[in-house]
Amino acid sequence: MRPTRFVALGDSLTAGVGDPVGGAWRGWAALLAPGLGDGPRGTGGFANLAESGAQTRDVRERQLPAALALRPELASVVVGVNDTLRRTFDIHAVTARLDEVYAALTRQGTVILTACLPDPGALLGLPGALARPLARRQQAVNSVVHALSDRYGAVHLHAAEGAWITDRAMWSADRLHPGERGHRHVALRFHALLAERGLATGRAPSPEPEAPAPGTWQSLWWLATAGTGWVTRRCTDLLPQLLRLAADEVRHRARGTSTRLDLRTAAAVSAALTALPAPERADAA
């Protein structure tokens, strides 16, 4: 069996943020790649096209053409959290873009890796009224990813729940991205899913990190330096709308009508999926 060509698309999670090695980011995709085959390098070529801050639009417009040109046997598409952190969030647009990406790769005969992810509000420890609107958005994205994964036969990782989310050792100083241990956890789980399908024949990555987890001082330093800039950029774009969403959340809770917000989100997801065109068959080649 010849080595597998593996291309990774997505945002900072796949770009490896939180797992620094040699002055650059490594991450779960790079940890997974050597275990896809039995050879010394594991793959017939690994390309990480993921970019920090990428949204579904960036994946469709910039990363997808580059991925298709490489004609990979395996491609990961893990994206959507940054969409939920923007005032322009639109589940219909997110659904259509993800469907285009999955469809284009599948037509080429590529096996897709996908994942549902935890909501950022919970990871950052935001107050309930602020966290719930973000959680609802992430749940909407996860519902779409679940449905599209079934539609295209993707290898899907359920990463939105589980003990790993509350295990501080899994997360980096920014509390939003996995640390080395967390990236290894994701790589291991993907490897197990691929091995079940006979798509990973090499050795699974080690679960044990090579570097110590960030301590309290490192976390505080990140929050005082890079973290401040990160929060400022997100607040400039999202905060006014998020405050309005939080006020709406408080009003509905006071009236006992919070389920209406959940039903509204579920209806939007259903409408977005219903509006998709029928999937095309993969190339005969």
Rank of each mutant, 00 (worst) to 15 (best):
G128H: 05
R281Q: 07
A275S: 07
S219I: 15
R41N: 09
T84R: 07
S149L: 03
T56V: 15
R26H: 13
G256P: 01
A213Y: 04
R87W: 02
D90A: 11
L32P: 12
R260H: 14
S76E: 07
R71P: 09
H191Q: 01
E280N: 00
G16C: 04
D83R: 03
D237W: 02
T274C: 02
V79Q: 09
A204S: 10
A211S: 03
Q138E: 11
R264Q: 15
V94F: 06
A129W: 05
H146V: 06
Y102T: 04
N82Q: 05
V78T: 13
G53P: 07
G182E: 01
T110G: 05
E280G: 02
A204E: 08
R86N: 02
A47L: 13
G229H: 06
S172N: 13
R57G: 14
P279H: 08
L193W: 05
V94N: 01
N142V: 09
A50R: 01
V79G: 08
D90E: 09
N48H: 01
P279A: 05
A173Q: 14
L105C: 01
A15S: 11
Q241C: 08
A160T: 07
L74R: 03
L261I: 09
L273D: 11
A195P: 00
A15C: 09
L70A: 10
R107F: 08
H92V: 04
L194A: 02
W230A: 14
A266L: 10
P277R: 00
I165M: 07
T225G: 14
F190D: 04
L126F: 13
E161G: 10
F6H: 10
L126E: 07
W164K: 07
W222I: 06
M170K: 12
Q55S: 11
F46N: 00
R234D: 01
P178S: 13
D262Q: 15
R60E: 14
R137T: 06
A147M: 03
P207I: 12
A54R: 12
R255Y: 07
P207G: 11
V17D: 03
A29N: 00
R233M: 10
L273I: 11
V77T: 06
P20G: 05
T232H: 12
R264F: 11
W171V: 07
G227C: 11
A54P: 05
R26Y: 05
V94P: 00
V111R: 15
A135P: 00
A278Y: 00
V94L: 05
G37S: 12
T201R: 14
V186G: 08
A268M: 13
T265D: 14
G229S: 08
A271Q: 14
